[in-house]
Design a binder for these strands. Structure first.
Lengths: 337, 337
DNA sequence: ACGGGTCGTCGAAGCGCTTCGACGACCGCG
DNA sequence: CGCGGTCGTCGAAGCGCTTCGACGACCCGT
């Protein structure tokens, strides 16, 4: 039994009285900001437990000027890469709790105004920004508000910020290295939709660069080609690719929505997997695993953990690297050989 | 320009000084809890805007004893019906903002302890509990803590609580009614995994009851059968079902992970859709829509909205119904006729 | 013209916590 | 044996806000 079930809030004064000390002493025991004798500390902690004391968040925030809450700004506009976001959110919450922080959920569609509100009201100590665009209006705002923030992905100008992302260039290289090691000499990248490249989105360009670089280094041919979304479009783009380059035997796919259709369409195009064509994808592992697809997973949990860790460091005013790239790993399954 | 970009917090005293009134007057203007002359109000609001004032959340929470934050307890343990959860969360955040509340994200794996912490620290005013089990340890705790809460789904004993859920019984009826109206006389329900029924999970039982009841009422045959997860298992269970009941022409599927495999497997089992067999699913619309599947969608947004609305009502100490069932609607597409 | 209501505003008292300065008690050193 | 220096604890002063009671000013009816 934790003393009292429900009822009125237990205050620090209650604990102090129960332990026979001053309220400030209780505070110091709990924060460890001053030395307290072992006996007193023991008595206080016992009282805390006996009364089921939890410090009042509002009062604490007011007095200490820190909320112990961070905001997670998610691209909740429907139609995103949902499972990844979810796993990411889980990791963020879990990690934040480990640092004794809670997580406030904010939707991206509140936009810059949301950041203003949150910063102005001191609701949170810092912000995790997902789904950052190359020229994101919230990024300069973050700088201006002096609101500690960590970005997932990275914008064009990342000076003075902290960004976490998968090292997509390395991911591209990894795929090519794997295929080359398996003996493939003609490789193709079936990439993101053309619009994504045109927008100059970082991850797509970096992956392509990695593929091309690795191919050059290893002396294999590599062609790259955008790929539109939707089963029909994927089939069309894949067919076109194979028509132009019929001798391709290694395929890198970086387009979540293309994974399924590609695997379905290859046999129809006369290519058995992996006998005729090896397929490697850069996509969430959930998507790859059930199909036995060799892939470089997007490590959502790891990104979440890293992001929180960086933010905590910033909150302590410790220096953090501007860009943190996560090392990709390739999981070999049945579609490559 | 909103006055000052970054820098120190603007307090209510700053606004009061700027407007030439007392701080309490500013407070009353903002809360509307006392009548204030139009001229004064105008002056105050102008100052608020000029200075870019946002009330300090901690101070406000401390003084008013309400945090203006609600907790959303999500089943973030990986492997849930992810897209639904996501849309639900979006709706919750958006609706909560409309009531001037923010949303704290809590993972279910913090369990009862998390509720204790949150309640004890007055971090939130109320709780939205998702993924409620029939005998959920958090439910009695909610009662004991006198923490206003709204449940998504409903537990065995819902007295004194507020629950929101899709009316699954009605959903089951709806599916049967639709199939019967199309002339089908032998109908099968391919349901949740057996374990789900064994756990006594409400929605599965209620759906089955609805199917059986409607079939009885309409004088059609209905068989029901659990269905395990995973493409292979689904194929097996479906094949078994059709072997035992080869004359089934109407199929109700209530198992997200089964939808794709069922549609893929039916042709292989010699059944064309919808010529030989009509298929109706109870599943997220995203899943059904791309396949042209007739379905009763799970209205995640609507549930989220309702849940927040109910919670807000509870926070205002207004009476709320113990159980709120959402009327299911059936969307006719290509797989039934 | 005067008492009784509003109406609009103000000042002060907290809400529960952190933090700063103060201050005994006790230590070891010369 | 007395003096400076920790060490451990306390009291008080806010943090920025809401809210309560008070109190002029004004309007009404008579």
């Amino acid at each position: 039994m934790t003393g009292r079930g429900s009822g009125e809030q237990v205050t620090i004064a209650d604990v102090a009285r129960h332990a026979g000390v001053a309220a400030s002493t209780v505070s110091y025991v709990l924060s460890g900001k001053r030395t307290i004798s072992a006996t007193t500390r023991g008595r206080v902690l016992a009282s805390v437990r006996a009364l089921g004391y939890h410090p009042n968040a509002g009062a604490r925030a007011l007095a200490s000027r820190k909320a112990n809450v961070i905001a997670l700004v998610l691209p909740l506009r429907t139609g995103m890469q949902v499972p990844v976001v979810m796993r990411f959110a889980t990791a963020v919450v879990t990690t934040a709790r480990r640092y004794d922080h809670d997580v406030l959920l904010v939707t991206a569609d509140e936009g810059p105004a949301g950041l203003h509100r949150i910063a102005g009201s001191a609701l949170v100590d810092g912000v995790l920004l997902m789904d950052v665009e190359l020229e994101d209006s919230r990024v300069p705002l973050l700088r201006e508000l002096a609101l500690p923030g960590v970005l997932i992905g990275h914008p064009a100008d990342s000076t003075g910020l902290a960004c976490v992302d998968l090292d997509f260039r390395r991911a591209g290289e990894l795929c090519v290295e794997h295929l080359a090691a398996a003996g493939h000499r003609r490789i193709a990248l079936l990439g993101a939709p053309a619009a994504v490249y045109d927008r100059g989105t970082g991850f797509a360009h970096r992956t392509r660069a990695g593929v091309v670089a690795a191919a050059g280094r290893l002396g294999v041919d590599a062609v790259t080609r955008p790929c539109e979304e939707g089963p029909a479009a994927v089939r069309r783009d894949l067919a076109a690719l194979l028509a132009e380059h019929p001798d391709v035997t290694g395929l890198v796919v970086q387009n979540e929505s293309a994974v399924g259709p590609v695997l379905a369409a290859l046999p129809l195009l006369g290519r058995r997997v992996p006998q005729d064509v090896s397929v490697v994808a850069i996509c969430p592992d959930e998507l790859a695993e059930p199909s036995g697809l060799t892939c470089v997973p997007v490590p959502a949990e790891e990104v979440g953990r890293q992001a929180v860790t960086l933010l905590m460091r910033r909150l302590r005013d410790e220096p953090v690297p501007e860009v943190t790239l996560l090392e990709p790993r390739l999981t070999v399954r049945d579609t490559s050989g």
